[in-house]
C-alpha cells in the first residue's frame, strides 16, 4: 500500500523517526537503525573535542539516512535559534527538531520560549519540527506560525511511561493540518502502535530502542508496531461496546 509520510513536501516511506542518543557504540546504533527502517534520524550539536569525531554523521551518510539536527540542551529561545543556525551551517540542512526545555528534572518543553524560537526560525527559512507539550492549544499555535509538524510528547523524555494523555493526542490530531509526530515517552512497541492508532502520522523515539536490552530487536519491534498501528488507524476500528455481541450466527 502506497502511504507515504509527507513533511514539508519531502516524502518518507517509513513513519518511524529515530534518535541516535543512548546507544553504547556506533555498531549497535547501526544495526538498530537498519532494523528500524528509519529514513530520518536526529543528532545533537556539541562542541568539537580534541578528537574531532564526526562518526555519527559518517554512519548516517553511509546508510543513506536523512539527518535531523536537534537543539537538545537549549533552555532559551536565543540559545535554540543560535544552535539551529549552527546546525544549518554544519550539516547543510534547514530542517531542525526544535527543543527548548524548561528544566533538567522534567525536560518538559518551555512553551513560551518554544513558541518564540519557532517563530524566529520559521521567519529565517527553517523547516521547524517542534517538540511540544501534549497541549492542543499550543500545538495549534505552533502550526499557525508555520511549523512543518507538531511533535507532542507522550510522557517526559526517557521515562518510557508511554502516552499518559491519549485524549490530548487525539485532540491535537483532530485539529492539525500538518503531520503530528508522537515524540518522547515511548517505552515499548504497544506505545508506538497506540500513537499511530490515535492518528499520529509518525513516531519519534530513541531511548526505547537504544537502551533496550537488545536494541536491534526492539528497533524491529517498533517498526512493526508503527506499521501495524498505521494500518489499524486506516482500517477503522470497531466501536467499543459494554455488552457482548456474538460473531457467529444465532442457532
Amino acid at each position: 500500500m502506497d502511504d507515504p509520510l509527507i513533511i514539508a513536501g519531502r516524502e518518507f516511506r517509513s513513519r518511524l523517526v529515530t534518535g541516535t542518543g543512548g546507544a553504547t557504540n556506533l555498531s549497535v546504533l547501526e544495526r538498530a537503525l537498519v532494523a528500524s527502517g528509519t529514513e530520518l534520524t536526529t543528532v545533537a550539536m556539541r562542541r568539537v573535542d580534541s578528537a574531532g569525531r564526526t562518526g555519527v554523521l559518517d554512519l548516517l551518510r553511509r546508510l543513506g539516512i536523512g539527518v535531523l539536527p536537534n537543539t537538545a540542551g537549549c533552555r532559551s529561545a536565543a540559545e535554540a535559534v543560535l544552535t539551529a543556525r549552527l546546525a544549518r551551517e554544519a550539516l547543510e540542512t534547514n530542517w531542525v527538531k526544535l527543543e527548548v526545555v524548561a528544566d533538567e528534572q522534567t525536560l518538559l518543553p518551555d512553551p513560551v520560549e518554544l513558541l518564540d524560537a519557532a517563530e524566529q526560525l520559521v521567519d529565517d527559512g527553517f523547516v521547524v519540527l517542534p517538540y511540544t507539550n501534549d497541549d492542543p492549544v499550543l500545538a495549534l499555535k505552533l502550526e499557525d506560525i508555520g511549523c512543518a509538524t507538531v511533535m507532542p510528547l507522550g510522557s517526559p523524555i526517557g521515562t518510557g511511561l508511554g502516552i499518559r494523555n491519549p485524549h490530548n493526542i487525539e485532540l491535537i490530531v483532530s485539529r492539525a493540518s500538518v503531520p503530528v509526530v508522537l515524540d518522547a515517552g515511548i517505552g515499548t512497541a504497544s506505545d508506538a502502535a497506540l500513537a499511530m492508532e490515535l492518528g499520529c502520522s509518525a513516531v519519534l523515539l530513541a531511548t526505547a530502542v537504544t537502551r533496550a536490552e537488545k536494541p536491534e530487536l526492539m528497533a524491529a519491534a517498533m517498526r512493526a508496531a508503527v506499521e501495524g498501528g498505521r494500518l489499524a488507524r486506516l482500517a477503522g476500528r470497531i466501536p467499543q461496546r459494554f455488552w457482548a455481541q456474538a460473531s457467529s450466527p444465532a442457532l
Partner: peptide, 10 residues
C-alpha cells in the same frame, strides 16, 4: 569562539 559538530543525541 564556539566550534560545534553533530554527535549522537535526541
Amino acid at each position: 569562539v564556539e566550534v560545534l559538530t553533530a554527535v549522537q543525541g535526541g
